[in-house]
Amino acid sequence: MTDLVPAVVTWADPGDAAAVADHIARVVSAPGQKRIAFTGGSTPIKVLALLKDRPIDWASVTIALTDDRQVPDDHAASNFGKIHGALGASGAAFERLEEGAVVAPFDLVWLGMGEDGHVASLFPHMHALVRPGPTVIATTPIPLPPEAPFDRLTLNHKALKATNEIILVVTGKSKKALIERAMAGDDRYPVADFLRGYGPPVTIYWSE
């Protein structure tokens, strides 16, 4: 779990939700206790729906979020509320985001990506409280997205990279093109920091 080796990026084939579900199942089914950081949004809920009938030992897993909006759990914009609603009865342990908390390493970090290339709540333009080490920071995107005009809590770069592996799950041709630009050297997008330079291996799951 180090960022001192060059990141290796692989495109999964197939890259659909079923393939992502298989990847999650492999990690969860490995021996011992596991730590997984889940992305927000609708994609994890779709993937978890594909896993609900599998004999998976979620009790061996601690689930964190890569980021969340600073809203109550029962708010429609709460990533924690959605994930806990899907897995709260599974036996999994949940680790809340707390600003300034030191974050232990993960077995898997699951990232999504916005149309502007942001990952977690690390935006191209934002107000952010910088903290050293793998930790949770507060961010506010600039401008605030009208569909989600909230302050955020997010794992910082060091926390997101403190993992055995990263999966990046995206859909749509425009996001694929952005990833290809980032991999070719365009550093305007936060996702570029995970696809180039140093860090854990990244598997990209892309579908139309």
Score class of each variant (00 low, 15 high):
Gly199Arg: 00
Asp16Phe: 00
Ala148Gly: 02
Tyr205Cys: 02
Lys176Phe: 05
Ala148Pro: 01
Gly88Asp: 10
Glu208Ile: 08
Gly100Cys: 09
Lys175Trp: 07
Val28Gly: 03
Asp53Arg: 06
Ile167Tyr: 07
Lys173Arg: 01
Thr139Pro: 04
Leu111Glu: 04
Gln70His: 08
Glu95Trp: 02
Thr10Val: 13
Gln33Thr: 14
Lys173Ala: 02
Leu178Thr: 05
Ser60Asn: 08
Gly81Leu: 00
Arg35Ala: 05
Gly32Ala: 15
Val103Asp: 05
Val8Trp: 10
Asp68Lys: 01
Arg181Leu: 09
Tyr198Glu: 13
Leu48Trp: 02
Lys46Tyr: 09
His157Gln: 14
Gly114Leu: 02
Lys175Asp: 07
Met113Lys: 00
Phe150Leu: 12
Leu51Gln: 09
Gly40Asp: 10
Phe38Asp: 01
His127Gln: 14
Trp58Ser: 11
Val27Gln: 06
Leu48Ala: 02
Val130Gly: 12
Tyr198Pro: 10
Leu48Ser: 01
Met183Leu: 09
Trp11Lys: 03
Ser29His: 13
Ala148Gln: 04
His23Ser: 15
Ile36Ala: 05
Glu99His: 12
Gly114Cys: 03
Pro31Val: 12
Pro44Glu: 08
Thr203His: 07
Ala104Lys: 14
Asn164Tyr: 09
Ala12Ile: 02
Glu99Gly: 10
Ala128Gly: 12
Ile45Phe: 00
Gly112Arg: 07
Glu180Leu: 11
Arg188Pro: 03
Ser29Glu: 14
Trp110Ile: 04
Val9Ala: 12
Ala184His: 01
Glu147Asn: 12
Asp13Ser: 14
Arg69Ser: 06
Lys173Pro: 00
Pro143Cys: 11
Val130Pro: 09
Leu4Trp: 10
Pro141Thr: 09
Pro200Arg: 06
Arg35Leu: 05
Ala17Gly: 10
Ala86Asp: 01
Pro132Gly: 13
Ala12Asn: 05
